[in-house]
Design a protein around this nucleic acid. Structure first.
Length: 416
RNA sequence: CGGGGUGUAGCGCAGCUUGGUAGCGCGCAGCGUUCGGGACGCUGAGGUCGCCGGUUCAAAUCCAGUCACCCCGACCA
Protein backbone atom coordinates (compact mmCIF):
# COMPACT_ATOMS: atom_id res chain seq x y z
CA UNK A 1 0.00 0.00 0.00
CA UNK A 2 1.28 3.40 -0.96
CA UNK A 3 0.76 6.10 1.61
CA UNK A 4 -0.26 8.48 -1.15
CA UNK A 5 -3.18 6.11 -1.74
CA UNK A 6 -4.16 5.34 1.84
CA UNK A 7 -7.12 7.54 2.71
CA UNK A 8 -6.40 7.73 6.42
CA UNK A 9 -4.06 10.31 7.87
CA UNK A 10 -2.02 10.53 11.00
CA UNK A 11 -2.76 13.10 13.66
CA UNK A 12 -0.08 14.98 15.43
CA UNK A 13 -2.03 15.16 18.66
CA UNK A 14 -4.64 12.89 20.12
CA UNK A 15 -8.27 13.99 20.27
CA UNK A 16 -9.03 15.45 23.69
CA UNK A 17 -11.94 13.10 24.27
CA UNK A 18 -9.70 10.07 24.58
CA UNK A 19 -7.59 9.30 27.60
CA UNK A 20 -6.86 5.65 26.99
CA UNK A 21 -3.45 5.20 25.41
CA UNK A 22 -4.64 2.50 23.03
CA UNK A 23 -7.38 4.70 21.61
CA UNK A 24 -5.15 7.76 21.44
CA UNK A 25 -2.49 5.97 19.44
CA UNK A 26 -4.85 3.96 17.28
CA UNK A 27 -6.82 7.07 16.37
CA UNK A 28 -3.71 9.16 15.76
CA UNK A 29 -2.24 6.48 13.54
CA UNK A 30 -5.48 5.96 11.62
CA UNK A 31 -6.31 2.42 12.75
CA UNK A 32 -9.67 3.28 14.26
CA UNK A 33 -12.22 6.08 14.20
CA UNK A 34 -14.38 6.96 17.14
CA UNK A 35 -18.07 7.07 16.31
CA UNK A 36 -19.30 7.65 19.86
CA UNK A 37 -18.39 6.63 23.38
CA UNK A 38 -17.36 3.01 23.33
CA UNK A 39 -18.07 2.59 19.63
CA UNK A 40 -15.27 2.54 17.09
CA UNK A 41 -14.95 2.03 13.38
CA UNK A 42 -12.03 -0.06 12.18
CA UNK A 43 -10.10 1.50 9.32
CA UNK A 44 -7.90 -0.26 6.76
CA UNK A 45 -4.86 -0.48 9.02
CA UNK A 46 -6.98 -1.57 11.97
CA UNK A 47 -8.72 -4.27 10.00
CA UNK A 48 -5.41 -5.75 9.00
CA UNK A 49 -4.45 -6.11 12.65
CA UNK A 50 -7.82 -7.61 13.51
CA UNK A 51 -7.61 -10.04 10.63
CA UNK A 52 -4.14 -11.11 11.68
CA UNK A 53 -5.36 -11.77 15.21
CA UNK A 54 -8.39 -13.61 13.87
CA UNK A 55 -6.25 -15.72 11.58
CA UNK A 56 -4.15 -16.91 14.49
CA UNK A 57 -7.18 -17.58 16.66
CA UNK A 58 -8.93 -19.39 13.81
CA UNK A 59 -5.92 -21.62 13.18
CA UNK A 60 -5.75 -22.64 16.81
CA UNK A 61 -9.48 -23.16 17.11
CA UNK A 62 -9.50 -25.31 14.02
CA UNK A 63 -6.53 -27.22 15.39
CA UNK A 64 -8.49 -28.33 18.44
CA UNK A 65 -11.47 -29.34 16.36
CA UNK A 66 -13.50 -26.16 16.41
CA UNK A 67 -15.92 -25.64 13.53
CA UNK A 68 -16.59 -22.09 12.47
CA UNK A 69 -20.02 -20.62 11.94
CA UNK A 70 -21.73 -17.27 12.20
CA UNK A 71 -24.82 -16.75 14.31
CA UNK A 72 -27.06 -13.72 14.01
CA UNK A 73 -27.12 -10.61 16.14
CA UNK A 74 -30.90 -10.61 16.32
CA UNK A 75 -32.11 -12.85 19.09
CA UNK A 76 -35.39 -14.29 20.28
CA UNK A 77 -36.47 -13.40 23.80
CA UNK A 78 -38.01 -16.81 24.47
CA UNK A 79 -34.60 -18.50 24.52
CA UNK A 80 -33.30 -16.08 27.08
CA UNK A 81 -36.48 -16.37 29.10
CA UNK A 82 -35.84 -20.08 29.40
CA UNK A 83 -32.59 -19.37 31.19
CA UNK A 84 -34.02 -16.35 33.02
CA UNK A 85 -31.62 -13.91 31.40
CA UNK A 86 -34.00 -11.78 29.36
CA UNK A 87 -35.07 -9.49 32.15
CA UNK A 88 -33.07 -6.26 32.41
CA UNK A 89 -32.74 -6.79 36.11
CA UNK A 90 -30.90 -10.05 35.40
CA UNK A 91 -28.73 -8.87 32.52
CA UNK A 92 -28.24 -5.12 32.52
CA UNK A 93 -26.34 -4.78 29.26
CA UNK A 94 -29.13 -5.71 26.88
CA UNK A 95 -29.84 -3.63 23.84
CA UNK A 96 -33.38 -4.48 22.82
CA UNK A 97 -35.43 -3.61 19.79
CA UNK A 98 -38.69 -4.53 18.10
CA UNK A 99 -39.92 -5.74 14.78
CA UNK A 100 -42.52 -3.62 13.04
CA UNK A 101 -45.21 -5.96 14.33
CA UNK A 102 -44.01 -5.23 17.87
CA UNK A 103 -42.22 -8.53 18.39
CA UNK A 104 -39.40 -7.92 20.83
CA UNK A 105 -35.86 -8.82 19.86
CA UNK A 106 -32.57 -8.74 21.65
CA UNK A 107 -29.31 -7.57 20.14
CA UNK A 108 -26.62 -10.08 20.92
CA UNK A 109 -24.48 -9.42 23.98
CA UNK A 110 -23.65 -13.15 23.99
CA UNK A 111 -24.69 -16.19 21.94
CA UNK A 112 -24.81 -19.07 24.41
CA UNK A 113 -28.56 -19.46 24.39
CA UNK A 114 -29.20 -19.22 20.63
CA UNK A 115 -26.26 -21.36 19.71
CA UNK A 116 -27.16 -24.03 22.24
CA UNK A 117 -30.77 -23.97 21.10
CA UNK A 118 -29.62 -24.33 17.52
CA UNK A 119 -27.51 -27.35 18.42
CA UNK A 120 -30.70 -29.17 19.45
CA UNK A 121 -31.30 -29.55 15.73
CA UNK A 122 -28.04 -31.36 15.24
CA UNK A 123 -27.42 -33.28 18.42
CA UNK A 124 -29.61 -36.21 19.30
CA UNK A 125 -27.30 -39.18 19.68
CA UNK A 126 -24.05 -39.91 21.48
CA UNK A 127 -22.70 -40.32 17.95
CA UNK A 128 -23.16 -36.59 17.41
CA UNK A 129 -20.80 -35.68 20.21
CA UNK A 130 -18.52 -34.03 20.83
CA UNK A 131 -19.27 -30.93 18.80
CA UNK A 132 -17.30 -27.73 19.16
CA UNK A 133 -18.40 -24.62 17.35
CA UNK A 134 -17.11 -21.11 17.27
CA UNK A 135 -17.57 -17.78 15.58
CA UNK A 136 -16.11 -14.32 15.31
CA UNK A 137 -19.00 -12.12 16.15
CA UNK A 138 -19.91 -8.58 17.01
CA UNK A 139 -21.30 -8.28 20.51
CA UNK A 140 -23.40 -5.37 21.63
CA UNK A 141 -23.43 -4.49 25.28
CA UNK A 142 -25.13 -1.49 26.77
CA UNK A 143 -22.42 -0.79 29.30
CA UNK A 144 -23.15 1.88 31.85
CA UNK A 145 -19.83 3.40 31.14
CA UNK A 146 -17.56 2.77 28.20
CA UNK A 147 -13.90 3.22 28.96
CA UNK A 148 -10.37 2.23 28.13
CA UNK A 149 -10.71 2.83 24.40
CA UNK A 150 -11.24 -0.36 22.43
CA UNK A 151 -10.54 -2.44 25.51
CA UNK A 152 -14.09 -2.00 26.68
CA UNK A 153 -16.61 -0.82 24.17
CA UNK A 154 -20.33 -1.13 23.70
CA UNK A 155 -19.69 -2.90 20.43
CA UNK A 156 -16.80 -5.27 20.06
CA UNK A 157 -15.67 -8.38 18.25
CA UNK A 158 -15.35 -11.58 20.17
CA UNK A 159 -14.39 -15.08 19.26
CA UNK A 160 -16.72 -17.32 21.18
CA UNK A 161 -16.51 -21.08 21.10
CA UNK A 162 -18.95 -23.50 22.67
CA UNK A 163 -18.19 -27.12 23.38
CA UNK A 164 -20.81 -29.83 23.57
CA UNK A 165 -19.56 -32.98 25.22
CA UNK A 166 -20.89 -36.40 26.16
CA UNK A 167 -19.87 -36.22 29.74
CA UNK A 168 -17.75 -34.42 32.26
CA UNK A 169 -14.65 -36.39 31.32
CA UNK A 170 -14.87 -35.57 27.65
CA UNK A 171 -15.62 -31.98 28.52
CA UNK A 172 -12.67 -31.65 30.86
CA UNK A 173 -10.26 -33.06 28.30
CA UNK A 174 -11.43 -30.53 25.74
CA UNK A 175 -11.36 -27.73 28.29
CA UNK A 176 -7.73 -28.51 29.03
CA UNK A 177 -6.93 -28.65 25.33
CA UNK A 178 -8.47 -25.24 24.81
CA UNK A 179 -6.49 -23.88 27.73
CA UNK A 180 -3.32 -24.92 25.93
CA UNK A 181 -4.60 -23.54 22.63
CA UNK A 182 -5.31 -20.21 24.28
CA UNK A 183 -1.83 -20.00 25.69
CA UNK A 184 -0.51 -20.72 22.22
CA UNK A 185 -2.64 -17.94 20.78
CA UNK A 186 -1.44 -15.39 23.28
CA UNK A 187 2.13 -16.45 22.65
CA UNK A 188 1.66 -16.16 18.91
CA UNK A 189 0.22 -12.65 19.09
CA UNK A 190 3.22 -11.62 21.17
CA UNK A 191 1.75 -11.56 24.66
CA UNK A 192 3.08 -14.89 25.88
CA UNK A 193 5.38 -13.48 28.50
CA UNK A 194 2.81 -11.33 30.21
CA UNK A 195 -0.32 -13.46 29.93
CA UNK A 196 -1.32 -15.88 32.67
CA UNK A 197 -3.99 -18.42 33.40
CA UNK A 198 -5.99 -16.90 36.21
CA UNK A 199 -8.52 -18.50 38.51
CA UNK A 200 -11.68 -16.50 38.64
CA UNK A 201 -15.22 -16.85 39.85
CA UNK A 202 -17.13 -19.61 38.12
CA UNK A 203 -20.62 -18.27 38.34
CA UNK A 204 -23.44 -20.58 39.30
CA UNK A 205 -22.05 -23.59 37.52
CA UNK A 206 -18.58 -24.36 38.77
CA UNK A 207 -16.25 -23.23 41.46
CA UNK A 208 -13.87 -21.48 39.08
CA UNK A 209 -13.63 -20.23 35.60
CA UNK A 210 -10.30 -19.56 34.00
CA UNK A 211 -9.30 -16.21 32.69
CA UNK A 212 -6.31 -15.32 30.61
CA UNK A 213 -4.97 -12.13 32.06
CA UNK A 214 -2.34 -9.94 30.44
CA UNK A 215 -0.35 -7.92 32.91
CA UNK A 216 -0.64 -4.22 32.06
CA UNK A 217 -1.41 -1.06 33.96
CA UNK A 218 -4.13 -0.41 31.42
CA UNK A 219 -6.02 -3.42 32.72
CA UNK A 220 -9.15 -3.21 34.81
CA UNK A 221 -8.59 -6.31 36.89
CA UNK A 222 -6.36 -6.98 39.84
CA UNK A 223 -4.75 -10.37 40.00
CA UNK A 224 -2.35 -12.10 42.36
CA UNK A 225 0.39 -13.63 40.32
CA UNK A 226 2.87 -16.43 40.89
CA UNK A 227 5.35 -15.77 38.08
CA UNK A 228 7.21 -19.05 38.52
CA UNK A 229 4.14 -21.23 38.28
CA UNK A 230 2.64 -18.89 35.68
CA UNK A 231 -0.63 -18.92 37.58
CA UNK A 232 -2.71 -16.15 39.03
CA UNK A 233 -5.82 -15.60 41.11
CA UNK A 234 -8.31 -12.89 40.35
CA UNK A 235 -8.98 -10.56 43.24
CA UNK A 236 -12.64 -11.66 43.04
CA UNK A 237 -11.78 -15.06 44.46
CA UNK A 238 -8.58 -14.24 46.29
CA UNK A 239 -8.97 -15.96 49.65
CA UNK A 240 -6.71 -18.08 51.82
CA UNK A 241 -8.88 -21.05 51.00
CA UNK A 242 -8.38 -20.62 47.27
CA UNK A 243 -4.66 -20.03 47.62
CA UNK A 244 -4.38 -23.24 49.56
CA UNK A 245 -6.64 -25.10 47.18
CA UNK A 246 -4.33 -24.18 44.32
CA UNK A 247 -1.23 -25.03 46.31
CA UNK A 248 0.17 -21.54 45.98
CA UNK A 249 2.38 -19.73 48.46
CA UNK A 250 0.75 -16.48 49.53
CA UNK A 251 4.10 -14.78 50.14
CA UNK A 252 5.08 -15.36 46.53
CA UNK A 253 1.96 -13.82 45.06
CA UNK A 254 2.33 -10.38 43.60
CA UNK A 255 -0.57 -7.99 43.15
CA UNK A 256 -0.66 -6.61 39.61
CA UNK A 257 -3.12 -4.97 37.26
CA UNK A 258 -4.15 -6.99 34.28
CA UNK A 259 -6.51 -7.05 31.33
CA UNK A 260 -8.70 -10.06 30.71
CA UNK A 261 -8.05 -11.21 27.16
CA UNK A 262 -9.74 -14.59 27.38
CA UNK A 263 -12.14 -16.46 29.60
CA UNK A 264 -13.24 -20.07 29.61
CA UNK A 265 -16.18 -21.55 31.50
CA UNK A 266 -17.61 -24.91 32.32
CA UNK A 267 -21.38 -24.92 32.42
CA UNK A 268 -21.93 -28.52 33.33
CA UNK A 269 -25.40 -29.54 32.22
CA UNK A 270 -27.21 -26.60 33.74
CA UNK A 271 -27.73 -24.75 30.50
CA UNK A 272 -28.50 -27.83 28.44
CA UNK A 273 -31.17 -28.73 30.99
CA UNK A 274 -32.68 -25.25 30.80
CA UNK A 275 -32.71 -25.33 27.02
CA UNK A 276 -33.32 -29.07 26.76
CA UNK A 277 -30.27 -30.07 24.80
CA UNK A 278 -29.99 -33.80 25.30
CA UNK A 279 -28.90 -36.94 23.51
CA UNK A 280 -29.57 -40.65 23.70
CA UNK A 281 -26.63 -42.65 24.97
CA UNK A 282 -25.55 -46.16 23.96
CA UNK A 283 -27.99 -47.73 26.36
CA UNK A 284 -30.92 -45.69 25.09
CA UNK A 285 -30.96 -43.34 28.04
CA UNK A 286 -31.57 -39.62 27.72
CA UNK A 287 -28.57 -37.56 28.86
CA UNK A 288 -27.91 -33.87 28.97
CA UNK A 289 -25.02 -32.45 27.02
CA UNK A 290 -22.09 -30.99 28.98
CA UNK A 291 -21.31 -27.42 27.95
CA UNK A 292 -18.27 -25.22 27.90
CA UNK A 293 -17.80 -21.67 26.69
CA UNK A 294 -14.57 -20.09 25.53
CA UNK A 295 -14.16 -16.42 24.70
CA UNK A 296 -11.43 -14.18 23.38
CA UNK A 297 -12.11 -10.49 22.92
CA UNK A 298 -10.54 -9.86 19.54
CA UNK A 299 -10.83 -6.09 19.54
CA UNK A 300 -9.82 -5.92 23.18
CA UNK A 301 -6.79 -8.05 22.38
CA UNK A 302 -5.80 -5.50 19.74
CA UNK A 303 -6.09 -2.75 22.35
CA UNK A 304 -4.07 -4.69 24.87
CA UNK A 305 -1.31 -5.36 22.35
CA UNK A 306 -1.27 -1.66 21.53
CA UNK A 307 -1.02 -0.75 25.21
CA UNK A 308 1.59 -3.31 26.16
CA UNK A 309 4.10 -2.58 23.42
CA UNK A 310 3.66 1.13 22.70
CA UNK A 311 6.52 3.46 23.47
CA UNK A 312 6.72 7.24 23.62
CA UNK A 313 6.85 7.45 19.84
CA UNK A 314 3.86 5.34 19.04
CA UNK A 315 2.62 1.85 18.37
CA UNK A 316 4.90 -1.16 18.24
CA UNK A 317 3.27 -4.19 16.66
CA UNK A 318 4.58 -7.71 17.12
CA UNK A 319 5.28 -9.12 13.68
CA UNK A 320 2.50 -11.68 13.78
CA UNK A 321 -0.23 -9.06 14.05
CA UNK A 322 1.37 -6.03 12.40
CA UNK A 323 -0.70 -4.62 9.53
CA UNK A 324 2.39 -4.61 7.35
CA UNK A 325 5.78 -6.20 7.77
CA UNK A 326 7.82 -3.45 6.16
CA UNK A 327 7.49 0.30 6.23
CA UNK A 328 9.39 1.51 3.19
CA UNK A 329 10.32 5.17 3.14
CA UNK A 330 11.61 6.97 0.10
CA UNK A 331 13.66 10.05 0.83
CA UNK A 332 14.27 12.38 -2.04
CA UNK A 333 12.66 12.48 -5.45
CA UNK A 334 15.56 11.99 -7.83
CA UNK A 335 14.42 9.79 -10.68
CA UNK A 336 16.91 7.07 -9.76
CA UNK A 337 15.76 7.07 -6.15
CA UNK A 338 12.11 6.85 -7.12
CA UNK A 339 12.92 4.00 -9.48
CA UNK A 340 14.87 2.08 -6.86
CA UNK A 341 12.23 2.55 -4.19
CA UNK A 342 9.43 1.52 -6.55
CA UNK A 343 11.46 -1.50 -7.59
CA UNK A 344 11.98 -2.60 -4.01
CA UNK A 345 8.31 -2.06 -3.22
CA UNK A 346 7.30 -4.25 -6.14
CA UNK A 347 9.91 -6.85 -5.41
CA UNK A 348 8.87 -7.27 -1.78
CA UNK A 349 5.18 -7.18 -2.58
CA UNK A 350 5.59 -9.82 -5.25
CA UNK A 351 7.54 -11.93 -2.78
CA UNK A 352 4.45 -11.91 -0.57
CA UNK A 353 5.87 -9.50 1.96
CA UNK A 354 3.40 -6.86 2.99
CA UNK A 355 4.81 -3.39 2.54
CA UNK A 356 3.46 0.03 3.32
CA UNK A 357 5.31 2.47 1.12
CA UNK A 358 5.79 6.09 2.09
CA UNK A 359 6.03 7.60 -1.37
CA UNK A 360 4.81 11.02 -0.20
CA UNK A 361 8.14 12.77 -0.56
CA UNK A 362 7.84 14.51 2.80
CA UNK A 363 10.63 15.81 4.91
CA UNK A 364 12.33 12.91 6.63
CA UNK A 365 11.33 13.91 10.12
CA UNK A 366 7.70 13.63 9.24
CA UNK A 367 8.08 10.29 7.50
CA UNK A 368 10.08 8.87 10.38
CA UNK A 369 7.61 10.15 12.94
CA UNK A 370 4.76 8.53 11.05
CA UNK A 371 6.70 5.29 10.75
CA UNK A 372 7.27 5.30 14.49
CA UNK A 373 3.61 6.07 15.12
CA UNK A 374 2.32 3.28 12.89
CA UNK A 375 4.64 0.76 14.52
CA UNK A 376 5.43 -1.47 11.55
CA UNK A 377 8.19 -3.93 12.56
CA UNK A 378 10.77 -3.20 9.84
CA UNK A 379 11.61 0.23 8.50
CA UNK A 380 13.50 0.42 5.24
CA UNK A 381 14.82 3.66 3.77
CA UNK A 382 15.77 4.26 0.16
CA UNK A 383 17.36 7.65 -0.44
CA UNK A 384 19.67 9.39 -2.89
CA UNK A 385 22.47 8.38 -0.55
CA UNK A 386 21.61 4.71 -0.32
CA UNK A 387 21.05 4.46 -4.05
CA UNK A 388 24.48 6.02 -4.68
CA UNK A 389 26.24 3.23 -2.83
CA UNK A 390 23.81 0.46 -3.80
CA UNK A 391 22.67 -0.22 -0.27
CA UNK A 392 19.62 0.50 1.79
CA UNK A 393 18.91 1.34 5.34
CA UNK A 394 17.08 -1.01 7.68
CA UNK A 395 15.85 -0.51 11.22
CA UNK A 396 13.58 -2.52 13.42
CA UNK A 397 10.88 -0.57 15.23
CA UNK A 398 12.14 -1.98 18.50
CA UNK A 399 15.73 -0.94 17.95
CA UNK A 400 17.19 2.54 18.14
CA UNK A 401 19.75 2.48 15.36
CA UNK A 402 19.47 1.83 11.65
CA UNK A 403 21.91 -0.34 9.73
CA UNK A 404 23.12 -0.01 6.19
CA UNK A 405 22.71 -3.33 4.40
CA UNK A 406 22.32 -4.74 0.92
CA UNK A 407 19.04 -5.71 -0.65
CA UNK A 408 20.06 -9.36 -0.48
CA UNK A 409 20.66 -9.04 3.24
CA UNK A 410 17.29 -7.39 3.69
CA UNK A 411 15.53 -10.22 1.89
CA UNK A 412 17.27 -12.71 4.09
CA UNK A 413 16.16 -10.87 7.19
CA UNK A 414 12.57 -10.57 6.04
CA UNK A 415 12.25 -14.10 4.82
CA UNK A 416 14.22 -15.67 7.63
C1' C B 1 -26.44 5.28 38.33
C1' G B 2 -23.52 8.78 42.22
C1' G B 3 -19.39 12.42 42.12
C1' G B 4 -16.08 15.68 39.27
C1' G B 5 -14.84 18.01 34.61
C1' U B 6 -15.26 19.58 29.35
C1' G B 7 -17.99 21.19 24.68
C1' U B 8 -15.27 27.61 20.36
C1' A B 9 -12.50 25.81 12.40
C1' G B 10 -10.40 18.92 10.53
C1' C B 11 -6.98 18.41 15.38
C1' G B 12 -5.02 20.92 19.88
C1' C B 13 -6.34 25.37 22.46
C1' A B 14 -7.14 30.93 24.10
C1' G B 15 -11.22 34.29 24.72
C1' C B 16 -15.94 33.74 29.27
C1' U B 17 -14.35 36.42 35.68
C1' U B 18 -15.63 42.34 33.93
C1' G B 19 -21.53 41.09 27.56
C1' G B 20 -19.92 45.09 22.32
C1' U B 21 -20.53 40.65 17.07
C1' A B 22 -14.32 35.39 17.36
C1' G B 23 -8.54 34.50 17.76
C1' C B 24 -3.75 31.39 18.05
C1' G B 25 -0.84 26.88 16.74
C1' C B 26 -1.04 22.59 13.69
C1' G B 27 -3.43 20.83 9.43
C1' C B 28 -5.65 22.31 4.43
C1' A B 29 -5.07 25.31 -0.78
C1' G B 30 -1.57 28.46 -3.87
C1' C B 31 3.50 30.53 -4.76
C1' G B 32 8.64 30.59 -3.45
C1' U B 33 13.02 29.07 -0.62
C1' U B 34 14.35 24.51 1.81
C1' C B 35 15.22 18.95 2.27
C1' G B 36 18.27 12.57 6.65
C1' G B 37 14.18 13.29 12.69
C1' G B 38 7.72 16.86 12.52
C1' A B 39 11.67 23.66 8.09
C1' C B 40 10.56 28.84 6.68
C1' G B 41 8.27 33.25 4.16
C1' C B 42 4.05 35.34 1.72
C1' U B 43 -1.13 34.69 0.27
C1' G B 44 -5.82 32.25 1.03
C1' A B 45 -10.06 29.10 2.36
C1' G B 46 -12.47 27.34 6.59
C1' G B 47 -16.54 28.65 12.56
C1' U B 48 -24.78 27.21 13.48
C1' C B 49 -19.00 29.33 19.68
C1' G B 50 -23.02 21.47 21.26
C1' C B 51 -28.48 22.41 21.19
C1' C B 52 -33.02 24.95 23.01
C1' G B 53 -35.02 28.84 25.72
C1' G B 54 -34.45 33.26 28.84
C1' U B 55 -32.22 38.16 30.42
C1' U B 56 -30.34 42.44 27.53
C1' C B 57 -30.12 47.67 22.82
C1' A B 58 -26.45 43.66 22.36
C1' A B 59 -24.75 36.82 24.51
C1' A B 60 -19.10 32.47 22.91
C1' U B 61 -19.41 35.39 27.56
C1' C B 62 -24.88 35.94 32.28
C1' C B 63 -29.32 32.47 33.81
C1' A B 64 -32.30 27.89 33.17
C1' G B 65 -32.95 23.38 30.64
C1' U B 66 -31.08 19.68 27.51
C1' C B 67 -27.62 16.63 24.68
C1' A B 68 -22.77 14.79 24.04
C1' C B 69 -17.85 13.59 25.68
C1' C B 70 -13.90 12.51 29.48
C1' C B 71 -12.27 10.95 34.46
C1' C B 72 -13.23 8.54 39.50
C1' G B 73 -16.63 5.21 41.77
C1' A B 74 -20.44 1.48 41.39
C1' C B 75 -21.38 -2.33 37.61
C1' C B 76 -18.88 -6.00 34.32
C1' A B 77 -22.88 -14.44 34.77
Amino acid sequence: MRLTQLFTKTLRSAPSDEQALNAQLLIRAGFIYKEMAGVYAYLPLGIKVLENIKRIVREEMNAVGGQELIMTNLQRPDLWEKTDRWDDSKVDVWFKTKLQNDTELGLAWSHEEPITDMMRSYISSYRDLPANVYQFQTKLRNELRAKSGIMRGREFVMKDMYSYSLDEKQHQAFYDTVTEAYLKIFTRVGLGEQTFVTYSSGGAFTKFSHEFQTVTDAGEDVIYLDSDRKLAINKEVYTDEVIEHLGLDKSKLKEVKAAEVGNIFSFGTVKSEELDLSYTDKTGQKKFVVLGSYGIGITRLMGVIAEVFADDKGLVWPEAVAPYKVHLIRIGDKASTVTEADKLYNLLTEAGIEVIYDDRNLRVGESFADADLLGIPHRVVISDKTVANAKLEWKKRTEPEAKTISQAELLKILEG
